[in-house]
Amino acid sequence: MEAPRHWRLKKQRYSLTGEVCPHCSAKIFPPRDVCPECGQEAKTAFQFSGKGEVFSYTTINDAPSGYQEQAPYAVALVKLNEGPIVTAQLTDLGAEPVRIGMPVEMVTRRIKDDGNERGVILYGYKFRPVIAGPR
C-alpha cells in the first residue's frame, strides 16, 4: 500500500497544505522545492481554504484498477480561490450536472482501498458543490 509515500503526502491529502513563495508570494500546490513562477527556492507552508471552482472536467466510465467500484465518476481541474489548480474527483453531485465555473469545496473522502489485501483505506481530498448556507 506504499505506506511511506502516503504518509509523506498526508498534509496535502488531508488539509491541502501547499506553499507560499517567500520571494514572489505565488501560492503553490502541491509544494515543491523551486517556485514555478520565479524560479527561486520555495519552502514556506501555506494552507489553502479548499474553496474554488471547476476549471474543466470529464466523466470516467472505464476506470483504472482500484477505481472500478467508483465508476462512473467525475474528475475535475479545480481552480482554488488562491490561484493554483488541483486535480480531484468531484463527489456528492446528486442530480446536479457538472459545469465549468461551478463553485466547489474540498471534503475528505475515501480515495481507494487496497482491494482487501490488508484492509487499508486511503483517504484524501475530493471536491463537492458548494450549497448556500451551513451544512
Binding site: P30, T58, D62, A63, T87, A88, G124
Partner: peptide
C-alpha cells in the same frame, strides 16, 4: 501522486 491517485486516466 497528484493525478493518477484521483482515478484520472490518460484519455480522461
Amino acid at each position: 501522486e497528484f493525478e493518477g491517485i484521483t482515478g484520472l486516466t490518460v484519455a480522461a
